[in-house]
């Protein structure tokens, strides 16, 4: 898997590069700002661009804008956005149309090699990766007449992992249960929340996220 890494902090960028390379991911280019990122992405056509949200010149949301640009211009390049803060609003923006080949992770996750590489691989293979904190914010949001109260604790766990963009197999591995059991839970969740049944993959993520955003 070929990756471009963009972060204006050299220290962090080199750290990320080293972690990725250690797990066998090939880093084909590095960038310190959005402009350089676009150049490198166009030149190398990597599988994934790992992008920091805040970069020069304004240090606000260059990464998000670059992510959208890359997805529009080079749909075959996936993007994993890293952010110092994760906000539901940013996740919503990023995943507005599609969750395919997109990820949004808290920057802290780079300390957890497995979480980072897992997200890179998932996104790189057309899946999605949403930070558990964003998901827990969505799940934790209190609502009147909360339909989530219908769910069992295990179903809530499965719902959260689905929202993060995990496959049934990954969920099964995470919860140490059989894939059959996960499938049963997923069916139960979709029935209880009255969501249209949908197959594995990014459509399922979008359905879950839309529901969490606006359960009405």
């Amino acid at each position: 898997m070929r990756v471009v890494v963009a972060d204006d902090s050299t220290l962090l960028r080199e750290g990320i590069v080293r972690l990725l390379e250690e797990t066998g991911i090939e880093v084909v280019g590095q960038a310190g700002d959005a402009e350089e990122l676009m150049r490198k992405v166009r030149a190398h056509k990597p599988d994934v661009a790992v992008v920091d949200v805040r970069m020069p010149p304004t240090h606000t949301d260059e990464g998000l804008r670059a992510a959208r640009e890359i997805r529009a211009e080079l749909p075959e390049v996936s993007v994993l956005v890293l952010s110092q803060y994760v906000e539901v609003a940013y996740a919503r923006e990023l995943l507005a149309e599609s969750a395919e080949g997109l990820g949004y992770l808290l920057k802290d996750r780079v300390a957890d090699v497995e979480a980072l590489t897992d997200a890179v691989r998932r996104v790189g293979s057309g899946g999605s990766a949403l930070d558990p904190e964003v998901v827990s914010q969505m799940l934790g949001r209190r609502r009147r007449d909360d339909p989530l109260e219908e769910l069992t604790p295990r179903e809530r766990e499965v719902l959260g992992l689905m929202a993060e963009g995990r496959t049934n197999a990954a969920i099964a591995a995470e919860l140490v249960v059989s894939e059959r059991a996960v499938e049963k839970h997923v069916t139960g969740i979709f029935a209880k929340l009255e969501l249209p049944a949908s197959g594995d993959g990014h459509r399922r993520v979008l359905a879950v996220l839309r529901f969490l955003e606006d359960p009405a």
Partner: peptide, 9 residues
């Protein structure tokens, strides 16, 4: 964001 993080609906 504030609403999301509030423990009260």
């Amino acid at each position: 964001g504030l609403a999301d993080r509030s423990p009260v609906p």
